[in-house]
C-alpha cells in the first residue's frame, strides 16, 4: 500500500480546519500530519505519545574574511537583502537568507561556502497505532517552506490527512504539491464563500479531486452556499453543526466528537469522503 495524502484546506484561519482534520483522522483511522508549521495546533487535541524529533536545517553562507576582498558583488546579487557590506566585513542576516547560493556564484575569490542552520523540527509520534507528525518552525524564523518540504518528503504509507496552513499562500501551495486529494472546510457566510472561492481556484490549479465540508452549519442561512457549490458541480461532503458547547470543548483542547451530534456529523463525512477519494 502506498501513501494517499488528502490535504485539509481552508480559505482562511478559524474555519475549523484543525477540528475537521483531527476528528476525521481518528474516525478514518488515518495518520495526521500538521503542515501548518507556523501554528501547529493539532497536537493539542490528538495528544500523541513517544515523540521523536528530527531537526530541519537550511544552508546558509559562511564568509571567509581572509579571502573576501569586500567587493560587494554578493550584497548586490542577493535578492533578499541577506548580505550587508559594512566596508569592514560582510554580515549575513541568516533569517533573511533563502539558501539560493546566488552569492557564491558571483564571488570571484571563492570566499563563500555554506553551513547548515537549524530552522525547525519535525516531530513524529503516535496515538493508538496512528502516526502523528508535525513540522514546527522555530520562533522568529521566516521560511516555512523548507520545514514543510522536509515533513512531506516521506509520508507514512496508508491514508494521511495533511492539515494545511490557512489561506492560499505559498505554504499551502507547498503542501498541496504532495496531495492526491483535498477537503475544503468553509463556513456558511459571505466571508466563508469569498475565501472558499480562492481555495477552490487553488485546488483546481493542481487538478485534484476535492469536496467541501461546511462547518458552523446553519440551515436558515446556508442555502446560498449550497446553491453556489451546486452550480459549480462541487460535492458537499457534509455539514458540521454550530453549538456553543463545541466552542467550550475546543477551548479546553478536547475533541468535539465527544459530543454525539458532532460524532454523527463526522461519521457521515467520513463515509462520503470514501466516495470521492476511493481509497480501500
Amino acid at each position: 500500500m502506498r501513501a494517499l495524502n488528502i490535504a485539509i484546506l481552508s480559505g482562511k484561519g478559524g474555519t475549523g480546519k484543525t477540528t475537521v482534520a483531527t476528528n476525521l483522522a481518528e474516525i478514518l483511522q488515518a495518520n495526521y500530519i500538521d503542515c501548518d508549521v507556523e501554528e501547529p495546533n493539532g497536537y493539542i487535541f490528538l495528544k500523541p505519545e513517544n515523540i521523536m524529533n528530527v531537526a530541519v536545517e537550511v544552508e546558509c553562507p559562511d564568509i571567509n574574511m581572509e579571502k573576501c576582498i569586500l567587493c560587494g558583488e554578493c550584497t548586490k546579487t542577493c535578492q533578499f537583502n541577506a548580505l550587508f557590506n559594512t566596508k569592514k566585513d560582510i554580515l549575513v542576516f541568516e533569517k533573511m537568507c533563502h539558501s539560493c547560493k546566488a552569492c557564491s556564484i558571483v564571488c570571484k575569490t571563492k570566499a563563500i561556502t555554506f553551513k547548515p542552520r537549524k530552522v525547525g523540527v519535525i516531530e513524529k509520534g503516535e496515538k493508538q497505532g496512528l502516526i502523528c507528525m508535525r513540522g514546527v518552525l522555530d520562533i522568529g524564523e521566516a521560511m516555512a517552506v523548507p520545514v514543510i518540504k522536509k515533513l512531506l518528503r516521506h509520508t507514512p504509507v496508508g491514508l494521511n490527512l495533511l492539515d494545511c496552513s490557512p489561506g492560499t499562500s505559498c505554504n499551502a501551495v507547498s503542501t498541496l504539491r504532495h496531495a492526491q486529494g483535498a477537503l475544503l472546510v468553509t463556513e456558511p457566510s459571505a466571508f466563508g464563500l469569498h475565501d472558499l472561492r480562492m481555495a477552490i481556484c487553488l485546488v483546481r490549479k493542481f487538478d485534484l479531486p476535492f469536496g467541501v465540508i461546511i462547518n458552523k452549519w446553519d440551515e436558515k442561512n446556508g442555502e446560498f452556499l449550497e446553491r453556489y457549490l451546486d452550480g459549480e458541480g462541487i460535492k458537499i461532503l457534509g455539514y458540521i453543526p454550530y453549538k456553543r458547547e463545541a466552542a467550550e470543548v475546543y477551548s479546553r483542547g478536547e475533541m468535539v466528537r465527544t459530543i454525539p451530534a458532532y460524532q454523527q456529523a463526522f461519521d457521515r463525512i467520513a463515509s462520503s469522503c470514501g466516495e470521492v477519494f476511493q481509497w480501500n
Binding site: T75, F80, N81, A82, F84, T86, K87, F93, M96
Partner: peptide
C-alpha cells in the same frame, strides 16, 4: 531602495545610507 524590496527593507535602506 528598501521601500521596494519585499523583505529586509531596513537592511537595504541602511546599506544605501552607509
Amino acid at each position: 531602495k528598501g521601500q521596494s524590496s519585499g523583505g529586509g527593507a531596513g537592511i537595504a535602506a541602511a546599506q544605501q545610507i552607509i
